[in-house]
Nucleic acid binder design. Structure first.
Lengths: 186, 186, 186, 186
DNA sequence: TATGAATGAGCATTCATTCAT
DNA sequence: AATGAATGAATGCTCATTCAT
């Protein structure tokens, strides 16, 4: 396993540790244990704790992008529901995701990661809707905001928000928007 | 100033301190300084730091309720835009609001406060839309999710999201929903 | 109730509080509560906490003297058994008594109280045995040491040392000494 | 130096610090300084301060056992005088010993250590006197109580109790008991 | 590279003491 | 005299960081 691959693995372990202990509660030793190494080993890959946590955020962003972003020109509402915290893995990622929101306004580096993420997602979505809407950027922003809003609620009240209820709410928010698109999905 | 009033004042100061230093970064001494007292004084009103922070969250919830919740049967979209982080005071509250989201999944008491807040808001909104919609609860949830989604984005990227852009996005999300209401506002 | 009487009452309450919380664990507020006053009231009678605790020790010494010391020319072994922690009240006093032993070597004022107590007791006992023994001072010291030794053990292991066992051990230690006295009790 | 050995060394340093500052007065930093380490280092060996102090008590018990307990079938009175605070080292240990007596009634773990110590000592002594006395357990208890009683007095009034006076008092208490033993020492 | 023991600053918490009422 | 709120110093504990092996 080479250096960069190792770094990725450590960042992923860090994300897991954050999911388990909270962003405030994680200790470097939690992260090290999750990765199966000692704290000293982390020092070889990251200058300090903030760097580890930043890498963990990038890992989370990558996972979310993988869920909402990729794979062909999907334009149907159901495609975006996949980004919601519908299963345990999703809830875990969302807990981490929410944790970083609270810290980003106080950390330049975290803010930059968030902005890059939103830029990437919004751009990707815009391009998909370029043909279907005259204001693809607004459509993209609306999808992002709706997913964030529903996902937030579902993360804070997981028992009250089973997958169907999340999906229904997302449909209530985005349904009219999708109905207005000039070009329907194939 | 009586005991309860004092407690409220300290909780409000705590919210300010959290807005300034972040939920992870606040020290009890920051809170005490913001309130113009010493740390020892806090001990007369709260058993420990967690209790101070929980009280601060309740204070923030009360502020948000005051903005989105009250005052007559408002049913127009613009009414809810007032809950967004449109000015500096709003941004400050939202920073705090986001910070608690990240911690709630790891704290039973914080989770309970959040749930009570959402219950209150959703119930109040539902009642307002009882006559106008066959599914007032869905309408209420949609409003909440839209506001949370837009507010989150605006809080993470304050420069990119001036008031008009927030309002426009909220309108894009909620406009069709409001248009479908059977009863229009007077 | 006059000033001195009040002081005595507070000192007694302090001794009770020490019995309940330990000498390390007592807070001034425990003592105040035990006395049915507030901490501020204590300040009118004692300059500081050490003075309160010293007064409590004097109270305990007075109680022990009352048990071992007084009332006529008692020379029988059984008379001194009464000073042992035979009942709950005795155990309580002994817990306090032991607690002060640990602190005395580090406090000039406490040491002085202890020395005065031992001086009083030893003198009183010596006088009683002046006619019965050629070395009444040694007899007095032996009684004191035996009572302290047995009482200590009984305080540390209260369940293992019921009254009869304590008395038997005291008899084993002091019996021969008493048997050797020239003058027997009437 | 391995982990357990290190722990022992720290416990011993703790006992020294207690002897110097008192059980109430010792700070973790005193203990750390006595051991030549920092407070943080203590955390690698003990979960909290109470654990450090408990280990220090065990160390003191071991020292006392080493003085009173071991080395062949000693049955002479003078053998037990060695356990008294005859020199500065002995006085130091006794100060600590007394300090723990005061706290034991309020700490389950300290009480357990004391009881184990007394059990060990009493058993060891009983076995030694099994052939010499019909009631070896009483003999053992008497020796323990006499040593505790004399040692306590000598610790509280060190100037008034030079070695000879302590030994004389011990002889006065235990002499008759030893004289009654069926089997004399060789 | 990896280990993990040691460091030491940082912080919440406790509580004796003070003082305005 | 009595109250009890406020003070603020004291201290145990945590944990990111360092470094010798």
């Amino acid at each position: 396993m080479d250096h960069d691959e190792r770094r990725r693995a450590l960042a992923s372990a860090a994300a897991d540790a954050v999911a388990r202990n909270g962003l405030d509660g994680v200790k470097l030793s939690d992260i090290a244990r999750a990765a199966g190494v000692t704290t000293g080993a982390l020092a070889h890959y990251f200058p300090d704790k903030d760097a580890v946590l930043a890498a963990a955020l990038e890992e989370i962003c990558a996972r979310l992008v993988a869920r909402i972003g990729p794979r062909g020109a999907r334009l149907k509402l159901e495609d975006f529901a996949g980004a919601l915290p519908l299963d345990e893995a999703g809830r875990k990622d969302w807990r981490v995701w929410l944790a970083y929101w609270g810290r980003a306004p106080f950390s330049e580096s975290l803010r930059a990661i968030h902005q890059q993420y939103y830029l990437d997602i919004e751009t990707a979505l815009s391009e998909r809707f370029a043909a279907a809407s005259k204001t693809p950027r607004v459509v993209a922003s609306a999808i992002i905001a709706a997913v964030d809003g529903v996902g937030t609620r579902a993360t804070l009240e997981p028992e009250a928000w089973p997958p169907e209820r999340q999906t229904a709410l997302l449909a209530a928010l985005l349904g009219p928007l999708f109905a207005s698109l000039k070009v329907k999905p194939a």
